[in-house]
Design a binder for these strands. Structure first.
Length: 483
RNA sequence: GGCGACGUGGCCAAGUGGAUAAGGCACGGGUCUGCAAAACCCUGACCAUCGGUUCAAAUCCGAUCGUCGCCUCCA
């Protein structure tokens, strides 16, 4: 039995066959660091974290590269607006993102390349593409010659003639074809720039990923991932560049996650419907977001709303209930009960693997986990002892860990009655304030509407002398609270 | 306009040709005998609409309606 993965390139599920047995090389497009990351970024990062953890569970050594685009028009623009150095700006957001990923329990990538560290490789690739006639310099810029690649469009299912009609009117007429894209951009005075055979400049967006792949993994990688909004033009262009450069296939499997939506729309700056990861984590647990991702197919969109998060939190409580200890003073369950529990343990593990092997069907796999939870709880109810519960609970914990849910590591709730009275009071207060919250807390003006009740809660904390400095995250006491 | 995805019980969501359509949340009933919570047990859908293929369709094909994404920076 092998893992089957949906490959955007072939539009089919295919068995995972890696270049090197038991090793997966995977590259995932990371963020352009010109702003705080939002929960759409989190969804993508979570999807690939789940894939990665599962492949590791199935015995693969996963080598993951996730890049930071730290040289980019938007970064330069933002830095100019803020009167700061663009590299310092990027550095700050990289640090923020690292922390976001850690808070979300996402395992660090094996490599975190940055565009600005790959200039040598980039220049080499661009020059090679020029030498091969696949690219041409033009006034300090270098463009890729789209018409020269016979199969350009194979990933996104487009052909060049169909796209012509859609090209913007203000397209740069210096280009041979309006669809030719920049590999290298000449720099204006004051912009970050590197010396190159074509003058001072900086890399285009697409080339950096090709260069980083080449640098870390060589000509061909197993899996290339990213959001499905990157299919065109970004990934299409990566394929064009890399394959023209090496003459070899670039990535064997293209994996794309669906978009996170707010009110049924994709989150985007222009719509003003952004929730940052920080904002989310102020109100909710990392596990709740992970559950949201697990509970739907990674290729489909997720519509984010207070409802679904609330449901996720409840569902997590239920999963957690399976890890509770045996009832006090029990004498043990009947053989019948124990046999059923063991049968479910095995069925759940098998079902989990069957689902996940089928293109990472985490929602289906979750269903099997809940079935195990029910049997564990049932057995506990039937007087199963701690020892009798243990194999099933260990199994549950193992699979929760594969999913990356932090609850698996947290100590089992000791019968649900151990909370410090002071903490309990805070929990009650917090819940009360949340109930009073009215209307939608997300929306066009997140900065003003988000976490108003949380703000009031913080006032109380401050009055009690508890520091909840938002920059440094929540103080330890807050971690006990359910948000 | 071009390319693509999706539409399953009140909500979220698996299942993509065949035996009773997973699971979670919410609701209702019960174990419960002060109340409440937890846990346990029980309870609900013929799968957007129409037509077709087939011995057999939520699952394949076509049309219609609806939602969303990409085609410009985007996870």
């Amino acid at each position: 039995m092998a893992i089957r993965i949906y490959n955007t390139l072939t539009r089919k599920k295919e068995p995972l066959e890696t270049l090197t047995p038991n090793v997966v090389t995977m590259y995932v497009c990371g963020p352009t660091v010109y702003n705080k990351a939002h929960i759409g970024h989190a969804m993508s990062a979570l999807v690939f974290d789940i894939l990665r953890r599962y492949m590791a569970y199935r015995g693969y050594e996963v080598q993951l590269a996730m890049n930071y685009t730290d040289v980019d028009d938007k970064i330069i623009q933002r830095a100019n607006e803020m009167q700061v150095d663009p590299f310092a700006l990027a550095e700050g957001y990289i640090e923020d993102y690292r922390k976001n990923l850690a808070d979300l329990n996402i395992e660090p990538a094996t490599y975190n390349p940055r565009a600005s560290h790959e200039i040598e490789q980039i220049i080499d690739m661009v020059q090679t593409l020029i030498d091969k006639g696949m690219a041409y310099p033009m006034d300090g810029d270098v463009y890729y010659r789209v018409r020269k690649k016979a199969d350009y469009g194979k990933l996104s299912g487009r052909n060049l003639d169909d796209m012509r009609a859609g090209v913007r009117k203000d397209a740069d007429d210096r280009k041979e074809d309006p669809l030719d894209f920049a590999l290298w951009k000449s720099a204006k005075p004051g912009e970050p720039a590197w010396e190159s055979p074509w003058g001072k400049g900086r890399p285009g967006w697409h080339i950096e990923c090709s260069a980083m792949n080449q640098h870390y993994f060589g000509t061909t990688i197993d899996i290339h991932g990213g959001g499905n909004d990157l299919i065109f033009p970004h990934h299409e262009n990566e394929i064009a560049q890399s394959e023209s450069y090496s003459g070899e296939p670039f990535a064997r499997y293209w994996v794309h996650n669906g978009m996170l939506q707010l009110r049924g729309e994709k989150m985007s700056k222009s719509l003003g419907n952004i929730i940052s990861i920080d904002e989310f984590l102020q109100l909710h647990s990392a596990d709740s977001f992970r559950y949201l991702v697990l509970n739907s197919a990674y290729r489909n969109p997720i519509v984010f709303s207070p409802d679904v998060i609330e449901q996720a939190e409840k569902a997590l409580d239920r999963l957690k209930s399976g890890l509770r200890p045996a009832l006090p003073g029990v004498h043990g369950a009947s053989d019948e009960v124990l046999q059923a529990l063991e049968a479910q343990r095995v069925a759940t593990k098998d079902g989990f693997i069957t689902c996940m092997d089928d293109d990472f069907n985490s929602a289906g796999a979750l269903g099997h986990l809940f079935e195990l939870v029910r049997l564990i709880n049932h057995s506990r109810d039937q007087n199963a002892s701690e020892e009798q519960l243990k194999p099933a609970q260990d199994q549950l914990r193992e699979l929760l860990q594969v999913f990356g849910l932090m609850m698996a590591e947290e100590a089992a709730d000791q019968g649900g009655q151990s909370a410090d009275p002071f903490i309990q009071m805070l929990i009650d207060l917090r819940l009360e304030l949340r109930k009073q919250r009215t209307g939608r807390w997300f929306g066009a003006r997140p900065a003003e509407s988000t976490g108003r009740d949380f703000g009031r809660f913080r006032e109380v904390l401050l009055a009690l002398g508890i520091d909840s400095d938002e920059k440094n995250g929540l103080p330890a006491v807050m971690r006990h609270l359910k948000f």
